[in-house]
Amino acid sequence: MTTILVTGGTGTLGRLVTERLRADGHEVRVLSRRSQPYAVDLRKGGPGLDEAVAGVDTIVHCASSPGGGDENAAAHLIAAARKAGVGHLVYISIVGVDQVPLRYYRSKLAVERLIVESGLAWTVLRATQFHDLLVQLFQNVSKLPVMPVPAGVRDQPVEVAEVADRLAELALAAPAGRVEDIGGPEVRTLDSLARAYLAATCRRRRVVKVPLWGKAYRGFCSGGHLAPGHTVGKGTFEEYLARRFGGQRGV
């Protein structure tokens, strides 16, 4: 039996990774800011982190915050892992972190580099965006009388459960470095995904494609965040919407 620490283990992805590893009979510790007995803010570190990492064979690092602090969190985690002699660090990153100059993507890429240079044995998996992140975007913009979406942008949403399966598999395997990306089954225009969301939620909005500006927008328009050669996922966006919003009445 392997002892595994999952950071961000109460989050959308980390919770599923934890469930899969426990179902396979492994001892799994969950680290998050509020989850006892390993309630640790990775951005601050501290003695609780050393306790969480002690005796761990593998760390699956899922904790992340678009608001900032990922690099400090990774530095604290790496230091504790080296001190404890952890044998394998698995990190979930995002497809396009080296192609799209978005601040959050740059931070994820910086964490990748910290891990590569850490002296630990490591595995890094990059995934395309999860279905629920698109839904969050569409929920916000559909509050308006019309539904604006960035013009010329495509996406390749992937089922979070499939990413969790792959992470659990990697956690139990030997360190593999940068592994092949995992992407959803379809590359779709953002406006077509928006219309699918509207149909699933029975909302009536006119989808308006809005041209934007800036280097990050150009990076998304060029498809730097896509993995068309790695359509590993099977679950479609419509299937996700049907599970989440089946029978919902909209406005």
Rank of each mutant, 00 (worst) to 15 (best):
A176M: 08
V179F: 05
V163E: 01
V158R: 03
K215I: 02
L226S: 04
A216D: 10
V160D: 00
G184V: 01
R178E: 14
D191R: 15
C221Y: 12
A194R: 09
V158F: 01
R203H: 11
S222M: 08
L172F: 07
W213Y: 13
R206T: 11
H225K: 09
R205G: 03
A200E: 11
P228D: 14
T189W: 06
G233F: 00
R206N: 06
P185Y: 05
P150L: 10
P175C: 11
A164W: 10
T189D: 10
A227Q: 11
V179Q: 10
V179T: 07
G177Q: 12
G183Y: 08
V232W: 15
A199W: 14
F237K: 01
P185F: 02
R203T: 04
D181S: 15
A173W: 06
G152V: 06
P157E: 01
S222P: 00
A176L: 03
D165I: 00
T189L: 10
V207N: 07
A174N: 08
G229N: 09
F237D: 09
E169N: 04
A196F: 07
V158H: 02
G229I: 05
A161I: 00
A174M: 05
A200H: 08
A176P: 03
A161F: 01
T189K: 15
H230A: 12
G152F: 08
L190Y: 12
V232C: 09
H230Q: 14
A161P: 00
R204F: 11
T236A: 03
D155P: 00
V187G: 09
C202E: 11
G214V: 10
A176Y: 13
T189C: 08
G229S: 06
F220K: 06
V232M: 14
G233T: 00
R195E: 14
L190R: 12
R154N: 13
W213C: 05
G233C: 05
A164Q: 07
A161N: 08
A171Y: 04
H230S: 11
L198A: 10
T236H: 09
D165K: 13
V208A: 07
A164M: 05
E159F: 02
T189M: 09
A168N: 06
T189H: 06
P175T: 15
A196M: 14
A176Q: 14
G177A: 10
D165C: 03
T236Q: 06
V160E: 01
P185L: 03
R203L: 09
L193D: 05
V210T: 13
A199N: 11
K234H: 11
W213A: 14
H230E: 14
P150M: 13
E159R: 00
V232G: 04
